[in-house]
């Protein structure tokens, strides 16, 4: 960021731009404005730049920041993308609210609204059991995965040992591993060990298949922690525990939360293991329950019930994503892009 300031002056347009930036009445040049919005760049620069950025921000929300057509094009593009992203969600919500008689009306917007499908799935034994299984299994798998990954990531970042590369490489290999390749042996093994159709039988694969993601994310976040602060706190008279609790934990928390969310989404989403390793309400999770759902009577189309169940399991995760969107983006890119 700091190199931006000299460049302003060098740039052939810089001369007219410099005074403008501090005055929001004038519209800054588009190129300058766009740069400020690449977010990443807010790091070490002084308040001058923050001021500039906020001025640009304010100006850009109204002024002729881009030519009319240009702006219309990008705005339409954004609206189109938002509509496209939300379309299936709106559709499944619409289906879930249609009374059974209207399910075949092929309308996108329901003509009448009824909550009968929601009542139906919650009065049935199958869905509440599946919901409970999903929540419990995903939560425990997340807890274990993040815990193990924290230990490993700490060692990888802070300790010198042979095999560090090996562990990161192995984690990467497992991230690419096709789960279908181990379904058969695990199926056989679990039947012998009595883990078939149990919570533990799903928690173990979920924990393992999310470990790579968790280790990579946590290692990436831990690397950014100024660990020397812990030492400094000790010098200032803090006990090791205090130093850890008041210095390290708050610094590490964002990474841990990020890893936990992504791991949870993985476990919540999985269908293959759930379909292959469970058979009853004892451990069958929501994705498998929905996919194999047949309806309470065979004359009734289960579409409405499936839609209602889908909405129920989608809403909490959507909320989670909306609340933690920045973290998720950071985590996805930290976990996957390394180059």
């Amino acid at each position: 960021m700091s190199r931006d300031v000299p460049r302003l002056a060098q740039n052939h347009e810089g001369a007219q731009r410099l005074p403008v930036a501090s005055n929001s009445k004038f519209k800054p040049q588009r190129r300058r404005g766009r740069k400020e919005h690449t977010e990443k760049r807010t790091k070490p620069l002084s308040c001058l730049c923050v001021l500039c950025a906020s001025a640009v921000n304010r100006a850009s929300t109204k002024g002729p920041f881009e030519s009319g057509w240009d702006r219309l094009f990008w705005r339409l593009g954004s609206l189109l993308i938002i509509a496209y992203a939300l379309l299936p969600l709106a559709w499944i919500l619409s289906l879930s609210l249609k009374p059974a008689a209207d399910l075949g009306d092929r309308r996108f917007i329901p003509a009448r609204i009824s909550l009968e499908h929601y009542r139906a799935i919650f009065s049935d034994a199958q869905f509440p059991a599946a919901l409970w299984n999903s929540i419990g299994i995903a939560a425990i798998a997340t807890l274990l995965s993040v815990l193990l990954a924290m230990l490993a990531a700490y060692a990888i970042v802070r300790l010198r040992f042979r095999g560090r590369e090996l562990i990161l490489g192995a984690a990467l290999a497992i991230a690419m591993f096709p789960p279908i390749a181990v379904i058969g042996p695990i199926f056989e093994l679990w039947r012998h060990l009595g883990l078939y159709d149990t919570w533990l039988g799903l928690i173990l694969p979920y924990m393992t298949f999310t470990l790579p993601l968790a280790i990579w994310i946590l290692a990436a976040f831990f690397r950014e922690i100024p660990w020397d602060l812990e030492q400094a706190a000790r010098v200032d008279g803090a006990t090791p525990l205090q130093a850890f609790r008041h210095v390290i934990v708050p610094l590490a928390a964002p990474g841990v939360v990020t890893a936990a969310i992504l791991v949870f989404i993985f476990a919540w989403n999985d269908f293959l293991f759930a379909a292959a390793l469970t058979s009853t309400n004892d451990a069958r999770t929501v994705p498998a329950a929905i996919a194999f759902f047949t309806g309470s009577s065979r004359f009734e189309l289960p579409t409405g019930a499936i839609a209602a169940a889908s909405v129920v399991v989608t809403l909490p995760v959507t909320l989670l994503v909306l609340i933690f969107q920045e973290r998720i983006v950071a985590g996805l890119t930290a976990g996957a892009v390394k180059g």
Partner: peptide, 16 residues
């Protein structure tokens, strides 16, 4: 909104 497809269970998206 772009993150929403990522968060939705694949089975649910496929059914929708």
């Amino acid at each position: 909104s772009v993150l929403i497809p990522y968060a939705i269970i694949t089975v649910v998206a496929a059914l929708a």
